[in-house]
Each structure stands twice: as structure tokens, then as C-alpha cells.
Amino acid sequence: MNNKQTLWSHAGTPIKDLPQDIRIQVEASPKLLQDFQEQANIASLLKLKTYEQPDPSMEGRVLHRVGVRIQNGEHLRKESKLDALPDWARMIAVVLFMLTLSILTHREMLDNPDVEPDLGLALGETEAVFEGSIDLSTPLYAIEDPFAPTLITVDSNEFPNLMTPELSKQFESSFIELGLDFTNRNENDNVIPVSYLPYR
């Protein structure tokens, strides 16, 4: 066995306790002897820790507390696997979880970057299907077009004065056709009633 192997195999053992052949090998090499002594000194120093004694009441205290915890059913509670992880690993686990959640809720945005995400679809909502049918051919109110332009005939080429009483009346009647009657307008009203039924 070479010096390194000897050192690793027997380090910590006091030299006087080594087998005869190992002792001879160690004493023949000053460097090996020094290494052996250092290792043995540290080992004997550590042995002094056996003189450290706990408080005599510790054992009774622990027995009692373990008994109480068993009685409270603590041993039946499930341990979280995360508790065994160091803090940095738990932080990474939380960040990964939040990232995954973020990806799942924005999955549609990732698939179609030009389209705004439909959060409802992303969260698994389904579109409601309308079972009936809607007839778009017949308008609800089949009447004369209340929005037909009012034609005003003027005799001259001159641009007419639209504020004359005669023209105002014509405009009024057009509004009346639309159901907008400004003659009885209540000045205090902020809401103008609009109706698309023909005014009768």
C-alpha cells in the first residue's frame, strides 16, 4: 500500500494503535508521519465533544412533547413535498408554476399574435349555439322610408334661405314623419325620444 492509500485507510488512528507494518511505514516517512499526527490530533479533539451533555430534563420533555403531538394526530397530517426542498428550489417551483399558468391563460395569444386573446375561450368557455333562425328578409317595420330626403324646389338659382318659415315648416314635417316633434318640446328634457314608427 502506498503512502496515500495508507493515510486514507488509517488516518485518525493514533500511531501507537496502528498495525505493526503500517506503523513502520508511517514512521519511515516524515511527511506521512506529520499527516498522520495531524489527522489523529483532530480526531482526538473531536472525541472531546462526547463530554458535552444535554440538560437532564431534556429527555422527559421530549418524551412528553412527542406524546402530545401523537395524541394531536400530527403524525397523520400529510407532509408537503415542498417542505423538504431548500428555499431557492421552492422559489423556482413557484416561479415555474406562475409561468405555466401565464402560458396557459395566454395560449391563444401565443398561437395568433395578431388577434386579441379571447379570455373566455382560453379559460375553456364554450360559445352558446342559437338553435332557432332569424329571418332577415322582412324588416320589422315595413313602412315608407322615414329617412327619405326632403326635396326642396326653388325657383331661382340663388341658394335658398333655409331659415325661412316655409322651409322650416317643411323640415318640421320631415322630423314629424320621423316622430320627432319639436313643437311641444320640453326645454327641460335632456332626452329626445326617438321612434322609428311613422308619425300618425
Partner: peptide, 24 residues
């Protein structure tokens, strides 16, 4: 056992450095 011996060796060496001021 080899790993145990190796760890012991290096641990004691580190302790030796930490406790160098003691009369060892």
C-alpha cells in the same frame, strides 16, 4: 467506505486549518 474515508480525511484537514491556533 472509500468515500467515507476520503470525506473524513478532507474534513479533518479543513478542521486542522480552522483550529491552527490551538496547541495541537
Amino acid at each position: 467506505s472509500g468515500t467515507v474515508r476520503s470525506r473524513l480525511f478532507y474534513a479533518r484537514r479543513q478542521l486542522q486549518a480552522e483550529l491552527s491556533e490551538l496547541p495541537l
